[in-house]
Simulated scan of single mutants.
Amino acid sequence: MSHPVLAADIGGTSSRLALIGLDGRPTDIRIHRNDSFPTIEAMIETDLSARAEAGRRVRGAVLAVAGPADDEQVRLTNRDWAFTKAGLRERFGWSRLAVLNDFEALAHGVQVVAPADLVAVGGGKALPGAPVLVCGPGTGFGVAGLIRGGDGHPVVITGEGGRARLGATNATEARLLAHLVRIFGPVVVEHALSGSGLALIHQVFTGDKLAPELVIAAALAGERDAVETCHIFLRLFGRIAGDLALIFNARGGVFLAGGVAAGLAPLMAHSPFREAFEEHPPHEARLVGTTVHVVTSTEPTPGLLGAGQVAARLAALLD
């Protein structure tokens, strides 16, 4: 490639940057701690400088960011970084720039994730060409749908599904919801289905304050209260994923993405997740036939893979 494209998966804590050619595969992946840089521009500048001649040949970029990306000004949700698209293009001399929401990038990325990096939850059979759903808890709860456009290229639909109102379907969920109402007022999905939500569920039912990764670790070690916390979380997760699968008609498959989902993957087979996913009368049969997979890949991340798929199309225009 005479002009490789820079692809980046930019999270709240760290960023992964790589060069992309016509095949869309990330090469020379470099990981940066965001705390080391005052701005996103400084981080990109340091990365390109370290790539020497290859960095100087970059004429375009695809950035997947943890935040809304559809306006000219982009601000990360959980880091004090903001930029304008025109400002980045001018500063780095890029003729082409695409900025994606992180779940938009994930939806592109799940198409090329290796089978070894997918953990099936239940059965079903994906229908080729049918809509695909990607969702998952992290700092919030991300949602994206993928459909095939008229030209055969994938089209990703994003939204704020994590801000949909959350209800209760049994006594345990009603008890949790009552606590959440006292804390938040109107309760939305990501108040419960997020990393902080997992920690809060554990606190509500046990009285213990534990970081979400410690709750998951305790559950994996067989600690009873932590297992119960994760089962409450996974039942909610299954129900909301089932709701979204019906909304998107996701007969092409459901992919559960993000670090929280990957951490919980070993617990899902013996949890209420799949039962809650399918329990949507009168459409149980449709959901029984819908495949669900947890995305566990870490290097490259699904977000970086997705940015790479978009970057490949830019590379074809630049070369």
Rank of each mutant, 00 (worst) to 15 (best):
L6V: 05
D9F: 05
G11V: 07
G11E: 05
G11I: 11
G12Y: 01
R16D: 12
L17H: 05
A18V: 08
L19Y: 05
G21S: 05
G21H: 07
L22K: 13
L22F: 12
G24Q: 01
R25T: 13
D28A: 14
R30V: 14
I31M: 15
I31R: 15
H32L: 14
R33T: 15
T39I: 04
M43V: 02
M43E: 08
L48Q: 10
S49K: 14
A54I: 06
R56L: 07
R59M: 07
G60H: 02
G60N: 03
A61I: 02
A66R: 02
A69V: 08
D70P: 08
Q73D: 14
Q73R: 15
V74D: 04
R75Y: 09
T77Y: 09
G87P: 14
R89D: 05
R89C: 09
R91K: 15
L97H: 05
L97Y: 03
A98Q: 13
E104S: 05
L106M: 09
H108T: 02
V110K: 01
Q111E: 12
A114K: 12
P115M: 00
V119M: 11
V121C: 12
G123M: 06
L127F: 08
L127T: 15
P128T: 07
G129L: 08
A130F: 03
P131C: 02
L133Y: 04
F141E: 08
V143T: 14
V143E: 03
V143N: 01
G145H: 00
D151F: 04
G152T: 01
G152N: 00
G152W: 00
I157P: 04
E160F: 13
G161P: 00
G162L: 08
R163H: 13
R165W: 13
L166N: 10
G167V: 03
T172P: 10
E173V: 06
R175Q: 14
R182F: 05
G185V: 06
P186W: 09
V187F: 03
E190Q: 14
H191N: 15
L193S: 05
S196T: 15
S196D: 15
S196R: 15
H202V: 12
H202T: 11
Q203K: 15
Q203E: 15
V204S: 04
F205C: 13
L210Y: 07
A211V: 13
P212S: 09
E213T: 14
A219L: 14
G222L: 04
T229S: 13
F233M: 06
L236I: 12
F237Q: 03
F237S: 03
G238M: 03
G238K: 03
R239G: 11
D243H: 13
L244G: 01
L246W: 05
I247A: 13
I247M: 11
F248L: 08
G252T: 07
L256T: 06
G259S: 14
A262T: 07
A265R: 11
P266C: 08
M268L: 13
A269S: 05
S271W: 02
R274D: 04
R274M: 10
E278V: 15
P281T: 09
A285E: 15
A285H: 14
L287A: 02
V288M: 11
V288P: 09
V294H: 03
T296N: 10
S297W: 05
T298I: 12
T301G: 10
T301I: 01
G306E: 01
G308C: 07
V310G: 00
A311T: 02
L314Y: 06
A315N: 09
A316I: 10
L317W: 04
L318I: 02
